[in-house]
């Protein structure tokens, strides 16, 4: 069971992170993929601040855990999780995000922003690349893990399942997939057109161990990360985290219009108020 003090620490970080996300979105004059940012906020805090062995002062350390954001449109969410961990400066992100020549682009670029493990943004490619990292680690007898965060909509791409099949076949126990299972794509809800269920069974059928959890429950996130099998496990692991797109902001939650959007000053204030109320446990259910 997760240490309550650690749960509290991470919850506070996630709270701060949500506010930082909203403030950045409010300060930027273009659109931000805020819906899917808010749905994976707790997971990224769990990873960067608890589950992964990473050191912002030694970003090339061979022993670091590797993280790939396959749903690259959530770049800003990763930037802020990393910023809270000491990688980057928040003001710098706000000042330059999405602008010409910025290191902090709408999709993460490894060459422009050291600390980012892999350039992504074209969906469906991350898992195969993660499989490559995992093969390399195993062959070199390195002890780190490879984590790959995917959107559930993204897993409509065939390449994801080709990679999943490979990882299962080659028993890559050092590979951990994480699914931000918010049951929304860009323009629809899961089930409107494509039906992903029975989702966990699909991964099991490809020879993965599956852990299902509430992706907004920090205790469950910590437990899932603490209880990952050893890297010698016979199967890769996927954490299927049930989440809410737009989590914490009443007018964004489960609203297809907020896959990506721009925030007016008024909406920014309302969103911040929602997040504060949500954190204090005062917000009525959406």
């Amino acid at each position: 069971m997760a240490d309550p003090k650690e749960v509290k620490r991470l919850e506070e970080l996630a709270y701060e992170m949500r506010k930082k996300l909203i403030n950045l979105c409010g300060a930027y004059d273009g659109v931000v993929h805020i819906g899917g940012d808010l749905s994976m906020t707790d997971l990224l805090i769990g990873l960067y601040h608890h589950g992964m062995r990473v050191d912002p002062s030694d970003i090339k350390s061979p022993t670091r855990d590797r993280f790939l954001l396959s749903k690259g449109h959530g770049a800003v969410c990763m930037y802020i999780a990393m910023c809270l961990r000491g990688y980057f400066d928040y003001d710098e992100i706000v000042k330059t995000y999405g602008r010409l020549d910025s290191a902090y682009g709408m999709h993460p670029c490894k060459i422009q922003l050291p600390g980012v493990e892999c350039s992504t943004g074209s969906l469906g490619q991350g898992l195969a690349i993660a499989v490559g990292l995992a093969f390399s680690a195993r062959q070199r007898k390195e002890a780190h893990r490879v984590f790959c965060m995917m959107g559930d909509g993204e897993t409509c791409e065939g390449e994801v399942w080709e990679a999943a099949n490979t990882a299962g076949s080659y028993k890559l126990g050092n590979l951990v997939g994480i699914i931000d299972r918010n049951k929304q794509l860009m323009t629809s809800f899961d089930g409107d057109y494509m039906r992903l269920e029975p989702y966990a069974d699909k991964w099991r059928a490809f020879n993965w161990d599956v852990v299902e959890l509430d992706g907004h429950d920090m205790g469950q996130i910590i437990d899932a990360l603490d209880n990952l099998p050893p890297i010698t496990n016979e199967k890769p692991t996927v954490l299927i985290a049930s989440t809410i797109k737009g989590k914490g902001v009443s007018f964004m939650e489960k609203n297809v219009g907020w896959h990506a959007g721009a925030l007016s000053k008024e909406d920014t204030e309302k969103a911040i108020a929602d997040i504060e109320a949500d954190y204090a446990g005062e917000r009525s259910a959406a």
Binding site: G151, G153, E157, L185, M186
Partner: peptide, 28 residues
């Protein structure tokens, strides 16, 4: 469309049997 059919709302409403959204799956 592969999850990028935001502008096709009227088509899908009136001709749902001739509208396919494959999710994020362009090859498909």
């Amino acid at each position: 469309t592969a999850d990028t059919g935001g502008a096709l709302a009227t088509f899908k409403k009136d001709f749902p049997d001739r509208f396919i959204d494959t999710g994020v799956a362009e090859q498909n």
